[in-house]
Design a protein around this nucleic acid. Sequence first.
DNA 1: CGGAGTCTTGAGCCCGATCAACCGTGGTGG
DNA 2: CCACCACGGTTGATCGGGCTCAAGACTCCG
Lengths: 249, 249
Amino acid sequence: MRTEQDTLHATPCRECPLRRLPAIKTNTLDEIDFIQRQKTAEISYRAGAALVQEGQRDERLFTLLSGWAFRFKAMPDGRRQILNFLLPGDLIGMQGRLFDEAPHGVEALSTVTLCAFTRERTWDVFREYPELAYTLTWLCAHEERMIDDGLLSVGRRTALERVAMLIAHLWSRARQLEMLANGVLVFPPTQAHIADALGLSAVHTNRTLQILRKRGLLALANGVLSGVDELGLKRLARYDLPETSRPLY
Amino acid sequence: MRTEQDTLHATPCRECPLRRLPAIKTNTLDEIDFIQRQKTAEISYRAGAALVQEGQRDERLFTLLSGWAFRFKAMPDGRRQILNFLLPGDLIGMQGRLFDEAPHGVEALSTVTLCAFTRERTWDVFREYPELAYTLTWLCAHEERMIDDGLLSVGRRTALERVAMLIAHLWSRARQLEMLANGVLVFPPTQAHIADALGLSAVHTNRTLQILRKRGLLALANGVLSGVDELGLKRLARYDLPETSRPLY
DNA sequence: CGGAGTCTTGAGCCCGATCAACCGTGGTGG
DNA sequence: CCACCACGGTTGATCGGGCTCAAGACTCCG
C-alpha cells in the first residue's frame, strides 16, 4: 500500500540538508546540478511501507533523504533477516542490478523521503561524471563493509555483544549524521527489528537489552535511545578497530 | 611468509582462461588491452599465505586468476568469521578503499595466482573506460549480494540448512566456472573453514556434514567434493530463489 | 474505551558449544 | 626406515545460551 505523494523537486539538490554534513562527501556545483537533472521525483512513504518488494523488478533507484529504513531477506516459512539499517544518505536498490529482480526487500521504519532516479540513466553517470561513478562504487564498497561487520556479529558474537555492537554502530552513524538532539536519538526500530538484525529471538533480545540498561550502557524506551556509552558498548562487543574519523561519504 | 614468485605477464589478458567462460562478462579487445596495461604483476602464493593482512594498508588490488581464497575478520580473542570464499574471477581488496586500512584479511586456501594492479590507477578506469568502471561497480554489488545470502544463513538458518546452503552455493559457483571434472570438485576448505564461515563450531560442522552424507546429498572426503545433489541441498536449505541463468560477471 | 502492537516475565527445553579423547594421514628429521 | 609430530577428521559426554511457548503489562491510537 503505497501512499506516494509526489512532491517533485521539493528539495533542490543544491540545498540538500545532507550536504551540510562533514560526513558527506562534497561535490562540485556542476556535479550537484547533474544529480538534480537525474532526479526524477521526491517521494514520501509512511512507516511500514515496502519501498522495494523482494523478488520484484523495479526500474527506480533511490537515495534516502530522511528517515529510517532497512534491507531484509525473508524465507518462505516466515523467518526474516535484516541485512542492515538505512539512514539518510544511503542508496537503495543498488544491488538489484539493471533489470534484475531485487534480491531483498526494503521497508520504511519511519516516515521516509526518497529521491528517485531511474536505473537506465545510471549509465550516464559513468559516461559523463566519472568522479560521481567513483563515489557510487565507494558507497557500494562501504555498505559491504558494514554488512561484513554484521556478519561477524551474527556469526561470532554472543547476544550481549551483538546488541551492544548494533546500538553502538547505529548511535555512531546517527551522530555523524547529526541526528542526535542533546544526547537523545529518536530510534524507530522495535526490539523485533533488532532481533531480526542480529539473528536472535525477540524475547532474548529483550532480556539482553535489560542487562545493558542495568549496566548503564544505554537507555532505550518508547522509541527513544539515550544515555549511550558508545565506548563502553564497543569495548563490551570487543570492537577494537579505530573509529573512522574521516568523511564517510 | 610470502613466497612471491613474480612471473610478470605470464598469462596475457587476451588469453586469460577465465574469458572463455560464459559466466564471465565479455570485453572489447580495447578494454582487454587496457587491463593488460594496468596489470603490474602476476603473483603466486601457497595455501595458507596471507594475501591481505587485516588492518594494514596495501596499495595493490588483485584479481584471483586461479585457486581458492577467503575473506575473514578476526576478533582479538581468536574468534574468526569467514565473510565469503573467493574463486577465480573475484576481486580482492576492493572494499579497503584507497589509502584505507583493510577491514578484513584475505588468505589463500590453495595455491593461488593473482593478477596485481595498483590502486592509484583505479581512477584511470573511471576516467577512460566507463564501461569497465560499471563492471567494477557491478562486481562489488554482486559480492554484496552473496554476503547478504551468508548473513541470512548465519542469522536465520539451522546448522543443517547452513551447511547445505554453503555447499550448494560453492558447488553452483564452481560449476559455472567449469571447475568440476566429471562430477568431482577439488575442495580446499577444511571443516574448520566451513565452521568459521557459518558461525558454527568445528565439531558440530562435522556432525552436520555426516547427516548430509547419510542422506546422500553430498560426498566430501580428502579435499574432494562429489555426489552433490544441488537441488536437494537447496530445497533442504529453503532456498527457493530461481537459479540465475544469466551471465555472472 | 477497546484493540493492536510492543514490551516484559516465567518455565522448560533443545540445538549447538565445549571439553576431551582418539584415529588416520602425511611430512620431517634422526 | 622408523619415530615423531602436526593437522584434520571423528566420536562421546556434558553443559549452557538462547529458543519456544505462554501469559500478562504497557503504550499508543482511533
